[in-house]
């Protein structure tokens, strides 16, 4: 019975692995099993964990039936699988620098696994030693092949790297530069550490982060408004009314670039490089104080500090077009709509 369950698991796992492999190698569409935006980070981890489980199960079943895969090939093939997975499975593609980082760590992991005990380490080394010792004609031929192929490969890499490249050089961009301690907008100085959004208020008009946090749009698929918290209700008061006013400012001025879903994919977005910030990503406004946004919106790309090289932002200096109140309200709207909470320090 146990064996039957294991085999059934092995077959199902094998099919799953084959699908993942086909998607990873580009032979079938990588979207066959969709990675769902918003859930991708966990989906990737779960998928990888499942793959490791299946690999272990298949390896066990094969070993039980006298078809054990040598350690060397287990390690090498697993690393190649990861390489393909990272390159083709995850979409949008992961930049090379991060992939290289991941694969280097994966190589270390494979080494740690295959050398975790003497017996495995001996098994892993054996094919390499066989080629180096060249005791059989096959190994001798292989050694000769490597003797030619490895220098040739290195020559090829060197040649490639010396070829002139037409690609634009890498620009190390600081996405969130450190803001100044204070900023002066419309003649008034704001201390960024302590200033607060004057429209983040409860029904009595008092600053109340908790009250407003309870009324934001729910995160997740669909982004639902909370019951009785519709800013477009003509009777909406206080915070919700300010959100609506902020929304009006947003759709009159900002959505052309930042998009009507605030994901940085507006009408004009792709005219810029990089495209405008995606506010729905957990790495943007969710990580920042409202005052940071106030400073960035007021001063625009031209007001970025020196460390923000190469100043790749075309955002206008909105203080020249909006009032202070309008800037605060549009920030209020951005947090409301994305369902994120501004960073606070209490």
């Amino acid at each position: 019975m146990k064996s039957l369950i294991l085999w059934a698991g092995g077959i199902i796992g094998g099919i799953f692995l084959a699908v993942i492999f086909l998607m990873s190698s580009g032979l079938v569409s990588p979207q066959m099993i969709q990675l769902v935006p918003g859930y991708m980070p966990m989906q990737v981890l779960i998928e990888l964990t499942a793959c490791v489980g299946v690999f272990a199960l298949l390896s066990y079943l094969l070993a039980q039936n006298g078809l054990a895969i040598p350690k060397f090939w287990q390690g090498t093939l697993f690393w190649v699988f990861l390489l393909l997975y990272l390159k083709f499975r995850i979409y949008p593609p992961i930049p090379y620098s991060v992939r290289a980082l991941y694969l280097a760590v994966s190589a270390v992991a494979v080494f740690m696994w295959v050398s975790s005990n003497e017996e495995d380490w001996k098994q892993f080394k054996q094919p390499i030693l066989n080629v180096l010792d060249a005791m059989t004609p096959f190994h001798k031929a292989l050694r000769t092949f490597y003797l030619i192929a490895i220098p040739a490969l290195l020559w090829g890499f060197s040649y490639q790297s010396f070829l002139p490249s037409l690609e634009e050089p890498i620009e190390l961009r600081t996405v969130h530069p450190a803001p100044p301690a204070t900023t002066k907008v419309h003649g008034r100085t704001f201390v960024l550490q302590t200033a607060q959004n004057p429209y983040r208020v409860d029904l009595e008009g008092k600053y109340d982060q908790g009250f407003t946090d309870d009324l934001i749009v729910e995160q997740g698929m669909g982004r639902l408004m909370k019951p009785d918290a519709n800013p477009w209700d003509p009777d909406a008061k206080g915070y919700l009314k300010h959100v609506r006013e902020g929304g009006e400012v947003f759709f009159q001025n900002c959505h052309f670039c930042h998009g009507d879903n605030l994901n940085g994919r507006g009408l004009h977005a792709f005219a810029f490089n990089p495209i405008p910030a995606n506010f729905t990503d957990s790495g943007t406004i969710a990580q920042l104080q409202e005052t940071f946004l106030f400073w960035r919106v007021s001063k625009g790309g031209i007001g970025l500090p020196r460390e923000s090289f190469p100043w790749a932002s075309t955002m206008p200096r909105w203080e020249e077009h909006l009032t202070t109140d309008e800037i605060w309200k549009v920030i209020l709207f951005e947090y409301w709509h994305t369902g994120f909470y501004p960073r606070t320090w209490d």
């Binding site: 990737v44 890498i170 995606n278």
Partner: peptide, 15 residues
């Protein structure tokens, strides 16, 4: 690289 940035569709990657 700027090409990778374009391929990624923005500065933020969903994973």
């Amino acid at each position: 690289t700027p090409t990778e940035l374009k391929a990624m569709g923005g500065q933020q990657h969903p994973v």
